[in-house]
Design a protein around this nucleic acid. Structure first.
Lengths: 338, 338
DNA sequence: TTGAAAGCGGTACCAA
DNA sequence: TTGGTACCGCTTTCAA
């Protein structure tokens, strides 16, 4: 802006540069031929006036804002505590940067999705990556109604056929976890499951159960957590109280595994000697537990990158085009907790 | 949007309702008198078409977007790890909700502030709350140049006179911490300081030093961390190696204090018997350490609320009006680490 | 290569 | 209360 309080306009830049608004616009955006003199004059004027285009005016005609949202319909407690989100955002931001897009993070408090949807319908962003959604938020339907290009990380409960999703094979990974436990001779294998209203929680539980049933073993040793450390400790306590003879635990997140190990330690139960444990995620904490945790690597970084790729494609195609579906396969990381 | 891919416009709504665009607009925004029939007709049309106003078009004339940014020029690692941010965002979101404003979070990776500033200049948000800023980001000057209403939580290094700031008395709080240590008879008091390029880090170090010098004691026992737990452990190790006889520590964050306690424990040093320790923040972790941590309560919630209040005021006044300044006083919370 | 002018989709003024 | 209309600030035809 100039020395006074008002932001300068393209008209003023044009006037100062002695060209038309059209030419000024072309000089600034640089996608068209402009004579060197005009170019220079405009750029000087821009600098002198401290001009930046008004986003609303520009968006109104280009139908682009230059920003992409990451929507996290999750309690801030978890968002700011689980490395999953840090990794996700880090990677999304990285990918967006290459395309010169601004990342805006929208934390949707469960309950007030109305304002969020209004915002999204207002087209203040060009598209959205959604992660950590829950059964009841119906985000897939809503976003599909809104017509905003979007990609879900992890399949939504409902409406999944209407949006693109980048997923990972949670069920398969969980069966792998149980297999490792079985191979080390464990027979009383419990699970600390994630929230039942989240796909990842549900599917990992599913995998655990499938594999146990296939082995003809008891699949009733379940306690639920919400992916946080404390919830893992609590679930573990519950499990131990109910089945003192358990010898293996599959925790649906490393954080919960960590909590469980804390609980085990406090009861003088040794890992892996007395109880073996397998986690899920491998986003740093698994390396630092004592003993280091055998876990499944959640390919969240790759998923984020792919999600952005698909999203940008959708945005380029104006949101038309069939929903895409990609599945990544988590891999087992062997450490010392089994 | 309708059954096809294009979002409907106010004109279409008006046509369907059999009224003018002007009336349709009034019916939708409801700040003007509109006859009941017109009102109903418009609302029906809106519903039928699934209409939502185009944000860009609206913003272009109202000069409002209905959203406010929280800018965090901080590594995602810290943002997603320090309860400070969770608390801050929780409170800001709460306050904004009352005014029906959407919170958008902007994580500024150090280095690429250019895109962020372009975004802000584009006026995609009505204002911004800035926290966790560093010496080199010069955000205060930049935002003041941009002319965007903003409030800083914690004074910026430079340009502080040009923006509103909500601060807390870090220096005073640190002197208090040292006083507690002195009162319990400690004489070799070290500090684990925060980053030197952050006001909070700098000021707390300052307070520690002042109080020690006032007491005629050695004020050379300093190690730096970055507010994270690991950095606290490392700093503590460093301190212990340099001065095995230290009997008190003031850590500039509870997370660093926690790391320090971990290190002390691993060396068999007892808290508070051998070494007393005072933290800073009291955002939950201090209650859960063993022993519970004596600390200074960082009034971040109150600061956030106040920041939003000031910001909304500034937005209402069109960004004119003198910068405001408010200082909160942290209070001592006595627990068992001293 | 350049400029004039027509929108983009709303809001708000003014007159009726 | 309502409708006509002039913008908001920018991009993009279309002609020159």
């Amino acid at each position: 802006m100039g020395t006074n309080g008002h932001a300068s306009t393209l008209g003023e830049v044009a006037a100062l540069a002695g060209v038309s608004k059209a030419t000024a616009s072309r000089a600034i955006n640089g996608r068209h031929k402009v004579s060197p003199q005009a170019q220079a004059a405009v750029l000087d004027a821009v600098r002198e006036l401290g001009y930046t285009p008004n986003g609303a005016a520009r968006s109104l005609v280009t139908r682009r804002t230059g920003s992409v949202a990451v929507i996290l319909p999750e309690s801030d407690e978890r968002v700011f505590t689980d490395p999953f989100f840090a990794r996700l955002l880090h990677q999304v931001a990285r990918s967006l940067r290459e395309h010169d897009l601004q990342l805006v993070l929208l934390l949707a408090q469960p309950g007030d999705e109305t304002r969020l949807l209004t915002y999204l319908r207002g087209r203040y962003v060009d598209g959205a990556v959604v992660a950590s959604h829950h059964r009841d938020d119906h985000l897939a339907e809503h976003l599909s109604d809104v017509g905003l290009p979007c990609v879900f990380i992890g399949a939504p409960w409902t409406g999944g056929e209407r949006v693109s999703v980048v997923d990972s094979d949670n069920t398969g990974a969980a069966t792998q976890a149980v297999r490792v436990l079985l191979e080390s001779g464990r027979r009383r294998i419990a699970t600390i499951a994630g929230p039942g209203d989240m796909r990842a929680g549900h599917d990992r539980l599913q995998g655990w159960r499938q594999q146990l049933e296939a082995a003809g073993l008891d699949s009733s040793l379940v306690a639920f957590g919400d992916f946080t450390e404390d919830s893992g400790a609590a679930a573990c306590a519950q499990l131990l109280d109910a089945a003192g003879d358990l010898d293996g635990i599959f925790a649906a997140s490393d954080l919960m595994a960590l909590g469980a190990m804390r609980e085990l330690e406090s009861r003088g139960i040794r890992v892996p000697d007395d109880v073996a444990i397998v986690g899920y995620d491998d986003l740093g904490v698994a390396e630092r537990t004592r003993p280091p945790l055998t876990t499944l690597r959640n390919p969240i970084g790759e998923m984020a990158t792919e999600a952005v790729r698909i999203l940008l494609e959708a945005i380029d195609h104006g949101g038309r085009g069939a929903p895409r579906r990609v599945v990544f396969v988590p891999e087992l990381v062997r450490r010392d907790s089994v």
